[in-house]
Every structure is written in C-alpha cells, then in structure tokens.
Write a protein that binds this DNA or RNA. Sequence first.
DNA 1: CTGATAACCTTACGCCATAAAGAGTTCGCG
DNA 2: CGCGAACTCTTTATGGCGTAAGGTTATCAG
Lengths: 280, 280
Amino acid sequence: MVFAGQGDPRRSLSLLWRAPEGTEERPPRPARGPKPALSVAAIVDAGIAVADAEGMAALSMRTVGERLGRTAMALYTYVPGKTELVDLMYDRALGELPTGYDPADGWRTAVVSWAADTWEFCLRHPWVLQVSQARPVLGPNEYTSMETLLRVLDATGLEPAALRRIVGLLVHFVRGAARTAAESRQAAAATGVGDEEWWQARAGLLAEVVPDFAERFPLLVRLETEGATPPPGDGEDAHGSYLEREARRTFEAGLAVILDGVEAAIARQAAGPCARGPLE
Amino acid sequence: MVFAGQGDPRRSLSLLWRAPEGTEERPPRPARGPKPALSVAAIVDAGIAVADAEGMAALSMRTVGERLGRTAMALYTYVPGKTELVDLMYDRALGELPTGYDPADGWRTAVVSWAADTWEFCLRHPWVLQVSQARPVLGPNEYTSMETLLRVLDATGLEPAALRRIVGLLVHFVRGAARTAAESRQAAAATGVGDEEWWQARAGLLAEVVPDFAERFPLLVRLETEGATPPPGDGEDAHGSYLEREARRTFEAGLAVILDGVEAAIARQAAGPCARGPLE
DNA sequence: CTGATAACCTTACGCCATAAAGAGTTCGCG
DNA sequence: CGCGAACTCTTTATGGCGTAAGGTTATCAG
C-alpha cells in the first residue's frame, strides 16, 4: 500500500495545486543555469504510462526515468520523492473523470452514470485502487470528483449526515467491485495466464488435493453448479474474460440494490423526523 | 499488491490443505538429518505477528526469520517463497472467523453479526485487506468462510444467480469499508501521527495553499460544516480515532441500506418470476 | 570572461527476494 | 562403529529498490 505525503506536506500540496506556469503565483523561472528539459507534468505522465502498462509494482523511479531518457535521480529535481509522484499521478488521473451529470433524468440515473464512469476509470488505471484512501491525497481533482458526486446526490434532499454515509457507501462499493475486476486483469497481465485457464488448472489441482471437497462445502458446490451462466464457447472476447464480465454484472446488480436502499431512506426521511431510518 | 501462488501451484495447495503431522497422508518424516527446529505453522504465526504489529510493508523474509532467531534463508526449507507464506498467513488468519451463525433470529440478524465479525477481523489483521482477491488463495479457511456466509444467506431463499451477486456485494462492501478504517489505523501507526492531528495540519495547509477552496467546492464545505457530529473533546479513546468511529458508523448504516435492498429483492422474487428485479 | 546556480549524473548505502553453494548435524545401513 | 546420505541452516552473491551525497556540466548575470 502506498501512503500519501510522508515528506514535507507543504511542498506536496503546492505541487498538487500548482498553478499553470507563468501565472502570478508562479514566476516563470529564476532563469539561471540550464533550462529544465523535463517538467513535473511530463514526469507524472510518464509515471501514469508506466503504471498503466506494467502495473504499480513496476513503477520505480528508474523505470519512469528511463521512459524519459534520464536516470532515476534526475526526477528528484522536480519531485520530492516517489510517494509525492504517486500522489500527483493519482490526482492527475482523476482529472479524466466527468465533472458533471445531467440532473434531468433524476438522481438515480445520474448516480448510475457516475458509477459506470468511475468503474471504467478504475479499469483504465487499475493502480489508482492501490492508493490509500485513509490519508487522502487532497489534490484538486480528488476534491472535484467528490463535489461532482455530491452535486448528483444533492438532488435526493437527504440531510448531511445521511448524505455523508451514502457517499461513503457508494465509493466503497464501486472501488471494491472495481478492485476485483482490475486485479483479475492485472494478474492475467502479470502472469500471462488468463482467468479461465487459471481457474481450470486450479480446479483440477484442488480436486486432487482435496478429494472430499463436495462434502465439506456443499453450498459452494451447489451454487457453482446450479444456475451458472455458461461460460462462452471461445475463450475471452473483446470485453475481457468471463470472470470480468461476471464482476461487471455483480457490480451493476449490487448498485441497484444499494440505490433501492437509498430510495427507502429518502422515503423514510420524507415521512418525517419521527420515523428514523438506518442512516441515523 | 500481493498476488497469490506464482510458484508451483501444487506445492502451494498441499501446504494450504496440509493434514496434521502424522496422518496417513503425511508420514511422520523421512527421519534422516537434524530434526527441524521450525515448522510451517511456527513460521506462519511469526509472519502474522510481524504483519499485525508492523504492517504488511514490514513483512520480509528477514523480519520473519529474525523473530524466530533464524536467517531469512532458513525459511525457504519450509516455505517455497514469500507469496506462499502470505497465502498461508491469510488462510490461517481466516480460521479465526466464526464458522456458523444462529439462524433463529432470522437471516438479517445473522448477516449483521457476520459483517461485524468480519469487520473486526479486518481491523485485527489489516494486512489481509492487501491480499488480492482476484486469484483467491483457495485455502480451507477461505472456503469455510464463504460456506458460512452462504449458509446464512441460504435462508433468504434467493435463487443461485441472485445469491452470488449478494455475496459479492456484501464482501466488497465490508472489505471496502474496513479498508478505510484499517488504513487509517495503519497510517497512524506507521507515521506516528494520529488522524485528528493529521487532518488539522492538512486543513491548515490547504487553506493556505488554496485560498478559494470554499468557492470551488461549496457542497463539500457545506457538508463538512452542517450536521457534523462534534469530535470528542479529548482526542482518541479506547475505540480508535474519531475518524475510525465515523467509518464504523458509515459501515453500519451502509449495511442497513444494503440489507433493505436485499429484502426488496426477496419480495420481488416471491412475487413471481414475471417481476424481475435488478438482480437478474 | 568569471562566478554562481541549476540540471543532471555517478556512486554508494541499506533495504528487499532469492539462487547457489557450503557448513554442520543426525540418522540408516553396511 | 563408521561412513555417507539426507536434512537444516548459514554464507555469499545477484539484481532489484528508494534516495542521500557529492561531482560535473551547461547556462545564465554581472
């Protein structure tokens, strides 16, 4: 797990919120010595490229430097250290997310769109799921994405305390669900073994090592055999492995369940302050 | 992220499912050469102790070896490598979870108990949240815990496909929610800075670096100021920081919302196969 | 041109996982 | 009893990591 901002917090924050070059807050440059050939933005982009392509594990100061034709140490002129680089990468990536949803079709549709966008974002940049949320990065785009979700949920008319909990619930759920799909993809890429292959090999071995599996886990076996969507005939298609599509379906169904619960909470709040729901 | 089983899969599996010493499946020992002073179990316990105390980041073959008075390399006689050790630690820890819940008070109460136990388990061993779920460890206790949850949910009478999705939803949610609380605790332990301190310092810096924060994120500011539970007067008490207790409340409220949704799904299924809900 | 300064490099340190090979111990068997 | 096989455990080495320290060089102000 990568923890945020262990270095000088002030420097981290001003890097995250840095104004575009040349603004009054950022004088062009002291203009002495050689011109910098790199920039924070270029380094962050290179970092994202590495992490997207090879995963967070492959992200090192050396690999990022190499991608820019520099040594690892060259980066330290621009960025205080690796943790700050990851923070910058995280916040920069978050900038890809939409910043507004049409409230015309109601909050529920908007939340579904938000969740789908977030899901796809997480699959595009699986490494963002490995950035700790406990001590948030506190960058502009992190705040913007929170504000965006809040704007959507504001339409529910829920009171602040309930709203906070719903936000937490939605974020946890989307991240958790995306994590499974993303890790599956990462594992496949890292090992070169697809999901189906892997599971088949493991199932065979398991049957060998644990001959009494069916007696020990009857419900698991029943759930697996009964009502399983048949895996497609010809391996993986353009939309990822079978398991990945299963994860997507679990995600959509779970979101629907959650939104049903939210609607119940709204109804309860509308019924008056006496009827206190589970959100208090 | 730690991926499971990159070594010889057969060896991993038989380690995970190893029968107790002396069984017919495991002859006492070839009995030649010095008696082993260590054992897989002792190493796994030492690993758990290290990870519990210092976090997953501090878990290295060296630290585990040191705790047993050995070098790092001594462990390789018992365990193929670090990934296998982590798998074994994970499955061993899962053995702490209860294996059955009283169905007398209904499935909902049982699920709430299950969730609370899982939550506490995750806070007791925060590192388990860093073990990838995409390629499961496939150990006995992992399967047992799934079977336990299934036994609880079996009482809902939901059909297999819906059941699978509910299981995924619950597991994602509990892990996601616990992760925040656990990471917060980990970060506090790793940096020696408590949550409140950290946030106050950051809030001050943020106000300095981003003077127009309130204009840019009006909803966030409103949500923070309105209806906030006042932090307790005197810092952290026995039950963790203020933020950790907030996380716990978010967790309980979120679970209630989810269970409301599950009840709706049950009602819909009972209404007949024509009324298809979001779980299909 | 000179001296200061900033960008970049080389080197080095202490971590990490683990491969390879050797040291030391304990037994089965001749 | 004694030898060699089998086994545990250590030492050493390789190639990775983040980054501290210090050197080199390009580019500027004066």
